[in-house]
Amino acid sequence: MQHKQWPAEWMRGVLGLCVLKSLEPGPTYGYAIASALESAGLGAVKGGTLYPLLTRLESNGLVTTEWRAGEGGPGRKYFRLTAEGLAELERQQSQWRHFTGIVHAHLNTEENRP
């Protein structure tokens, strides 16, 4: 199911985890991360939302950055998950699965149905 845009408060809660997940396969650049998130069905993530988040991840030591020469265009800034970032991804993934399981179970209980 494709959604144009999810509620902003949901995205605020989950975007950091999803960005960390996008970096799990290997170093990549901002637009590729935004495209991967959109392809995954999370909607369009604007640069004004993505880069401040990546900057915070870098400040917290979860990602490192490196400029690489572009092919005929401007250089690209690549983001790479650090060991701490990988550990944080695993921790948050585990927590998120537990949390969504609880929410899912709650939404499916008989007394909550109209």
């Binding site: 650049y29 901002g30 637009y31 935004a34 604007k46 640069g47 004004g48 880069y51 401040p52 400029w67 572009g70 265009g73 401007p74 250089g75 690209r76 800034k77």
Partner: peptide, 25 residues
């Protein structure tokens, strides 16, 4: 500045559209 330029070149968007207000960004 280089990050913004890179993203705009990749996405084809205008700066306001992609990043909003420059001061806020």
């Amino acid at each position: 500045a280089a990050t913004v330029r890179e993203h705009l070149a990749d996405s084809g968007e205008g700066p306001e559209e992609a990043f909003g207000d420059p001061t806020e960004y």
